[in-house]
Design a protein around this nucleic acid. Structure first.
Lengths: 170, 170
DNA sequence: TTGCAAACACTATAACATAACATTCTACCC
DNA sequence: GGGTAGAATGTTATGTTATAGTGTTTGCAA
């Protein structure tokens, strides 16, 4: 799955089951590295997020989380989200108040997110160079940068094509 | 007030009263241009946001809004915020769920926000070149960009100095 | 002066997130 | 095994941010 990490990865056909399995393995390894437990709760939340290249709101996770035939409390989900985010396994999409499984394992920093306004698919791009440029720009004002948030809203290739087609129809 | 629009503007001493007045004038002009009314409600919200180079949450505005000795309903504030944002007079700082008066009049697009983690001061930088670079990057994946969100979290010059000093003390 | 559209007022509720505290689980030591 | 410290979970409650929906007022033009 060398495709993962490439900018257009989520836009292409791929064996999503493999994609999921790799991310789970990656998560297990990350937990080992940090002497943390990859508990059932955390695994279940990550699996829900891995189901599609779409961000889920915390309460969507609550709803989809089938847990002994009951509903988990929001706090339970938020705890798992905070844990997964601390390990760089997921990202928060601020413009949507939603959470996305990371598909650039090992490169948790320096991401740029392309959020489709129509289908909600999110692509995660490598943006390290961009961030360096931004850091330089802000440093020239004396600002010391710690974390970055870059989200682009627009249309993914498929939705863009669809809309072009619909416009051509009329 | 040619200082406005420069990256380090909010970090420097300036006549803030003039700064406010200019923005109000600018808002009046913008409303004229768009055949909209600069109502009391909208003006009051903008003035609260102009009071400092700090973003305010909608409910902070509700609290500070002295309105015939009553408290306005949140919806009233959100309406004004939506209106002001549609005219580019204010920006939403997504990482803080807060709103900031624009200090780059006439350049409502292409901003980069530097958010101080310590004092909450926000600087608004011209980032058109950066955005172009990001658009090019995303276009190479077939993504059609509409809007951008770039927020950098860190320390403003003053807070950075203060912390350096405190560290040197110990 | 009537009629229309914009803006406002108000109530309620949706949507997102965390605090606080009790309980259970797990790893480790004796 | 039994004790125990820390991590994780379970639970309740509440805090925070944002919008829906509906009726009223206002400004303005025909």
């Amino acid at each position: 799955m060398s495709d993962r990490g490439k900018p257009d990865f989520p836009y292409r056909q791929h064996d999503h089951q493999v994609c999921i399995e790799e991310c789970i393995e990656r998560a297990e390894a990350a937990c080992m590295d940090h002497n943390e437990h990859f508990t059932e709760n955390r695994r279940a939340v990550l699996e829900l997020l891995l189901a599609g290249h779409r961000p889920l709101g915390a309460y969507e996770i609550v709803e989809q989380f089938d847990w002994k035939n009951r509903r988990p409390a929001p706090a339970q989900i938020y705890r798992a989200l905070a844990f997964l985010e601390s390990l760089g396994l997921i990202h928060r999409i601020a413009s949507r108040n939603a959470y996305l499984a990371c598909n650039r394992p090992g490169h948790q920093k320096g991401a740029i997110f392309l959020v489709c306004e129509r289908c909600e698919l999110v692509a995660e791009l490598e943006g390290t160079q961009m961030l360096t440029a931004i850091d330089n720009l802000s440093a020239s004002s004396g600002f010391v940068a710690h974390t970055h948030l870059i989200e682009v809203s627009g249309l993914c290739p498929a939705c863009s094509d669809t809309l072009d087609f619909e416009r051509a129809e009329t």
